[in-house]
Simulated assay, not measured.
Amino acid sequence: MQACETQLQHLKEILQNFTISSGLRVNYHKSCLVPINVYQGKANTLANVFGCLVGSFPFTYLGLPMGLTKPQVKDYAPLISRIERRLSASSQFLSYAGRLQLVNSVLSSLPTYYMCSLKLPVTVVEIIDKHRKKCLWRGSDFRKKGYTLAAWELVRRPKEKGGLGVINLSVQNDALLLKQLDKLYRKENIQWVKLIWQKHYPDGVPHIRRERGSFWWKDILRLHIQYRGVAYCIPGKGDTVSFWDDLLNGSVHSQKYPHLLNFAKEPRISFQKMRDAEPLLSSFRIPMTRQAYNEFLELQTELLQMHPANSDVNDCWQFIWGNQNYSSSKYYRYQYASLNPP
């Protein structure tokens, strides 16, 4: 919220009314006010409204590192420390089968909360993998060197593909973050989804526009290639799908009409804008070659045969596994679908 004393007083009044109605009291002494681009004197004045301390970035909120910049490797130290404690406390008493169960059920699950919201740095994934390898092959004796019974890539394969079923954290991280991207493309009734559409993409498709927003959102948006690799769109409004680059009616227009694409005035255009163009020819540069014109006539016929636009219905994204609902577990299994057991 804005650094305004009046707004803070109204917020404090709301919290006091909440205390009266629910009996739950806010402990301001355990709270802090974190200013952004506010000089120290004013920050102290605003903090006095609540009687709390003045904090600074980075800080931890609900167990996640929060800051104005992307979290560094050192910000994940609490997560790595928890994994190390579990490793040293349990693995020395277990057999190979028991250590495999520990890796799958505990060590691989500890980063899940982080991976649902943040893209883990490669270095953090490598550190976690190092500890998982130690637990599986060495137990509690870290002095053993080079003692492995199978390659790590084979170990991370699903059991039905000849592996041990240890979770691939990088793939799992993408699978969990794609849930957030799915909410955006479906325009779900969530405040952060509305904010991103209104602020960054009021008139364009996210994956064909320049990257905008925070590091958190950029990390998620960069997964659009993976998302569009397992999903296809049935247009409603047509404002979340690219006309040329996305799969529509079983084909990609940039591949179906390659000569016509060379004469497009706006190669990065949404399906909505192309469909509503009047006349359609105004979206292309003329004169054009005979091949391009023939493709234009085919495109014109295709658009006329499509269902009329419905400005009240959002685009419907469906997945290649035959479901309208995104599933991180199905996405994870799909990444290994082409592998054959050794």
Rank of each mutant, 00 (worst) to 15 (best):
R290A: 14
M274N: 03
K218I: 05
V252H: 05
A277T: 04
F243N: 11
N249C: 09
L299C: 07
N314I: 00
L223F: 08
W317L: 05
V313Q: 15
K218P: 04
E266A: 14
L303I: 15
N249S: 08
P308W: 00
L299Y: 01
K265M: 11
Y293L: 12
H307L: 15
E211T: 02
Q305G: 15
V241S: 02
P258F: 12
D219T: 10
A292Q: 03
L221F: 09
Q305L: 14
M274H: 01
Q305S: 14
N310H: 11
I220Y: 02
Y232C: 11
S329E: 15
F284G: 13
N325P: 00
N249A: 06
Y326M: 12
Q318G: 05
G250V: 04
R212P: 01
R290S: 13
W317C: 08
S251P: 00
D276I: 02
R209I: 02
E266R: 14
S214Y: 09
R210G: 12
W317I: 02
W216H: 10
P202S: 04
R285L: 07
Y326I: 09
S214L: 13
F215P: 02
H200R: 03
P267E: 13
F263A: 15
F284K: 15
G236F: 01
W217G: 05
Y293G: 04
W217P: 00
W216A: 14
R268H: 11
C316D: 12
P206G: 10
A277S: 12
D312H: 09
N323K: 10
S214Q: 09
K237H: 07
Q272V: 01
S242R: 12
G250L: 08
N325D: 08
W317G: 11
C316Q: 15
D203H: 09
D239R: 07
S282H: 02
K199L: 06
S254K: 14
K256M: 09
A231W: 01
K199F: 00
S282T: 04
V313L: 13
F263M: 08
Q272S: 15
S270R: 05
P267I: 10
D246P: 01
A292M: 07
Y232W: 14
K273W: 00
D312F: 11
N314Q: 12
P267Q: 14
R222G: 08
L248S: 04
Y257L: 11
I269N: 09
I225F: 04
K218W: 03
S311D: 13
P202D: 09
N314V: 01
E295K: 07
S242I: 05
P206L: 01
F319W: 10
S329D: 11
Q255Y: 14
E298I: 13
A231C: 10
L280Q: 00
Q324L: 02
H207N: 09
Q291Y: 09
H200K: 06
F284V: 15
P287E: 02
H253E: 03
A277Y: 01
E298C: 12
N314R: 04
G213T: 06
E266I: 06
L248M: 03
I208L: 05
L247F: 13
E302C: 11
R228C: 10
E278S: 11
I286W: 08
S282Q: 09
S242T: 07
Y257P: 01
T289A: 14
H207T: 10
E298N: 14
P308R: 07
C316P: 02
K256S: 05
S270N: 06
F296M: 13
W321M: 10
F319M: 03
E295P: 05
W321L: 10
C316M: 06
A231D: 09
P235D: 10
Y201N: 05
L280D: 00
R268Q: 12
A309V: 10
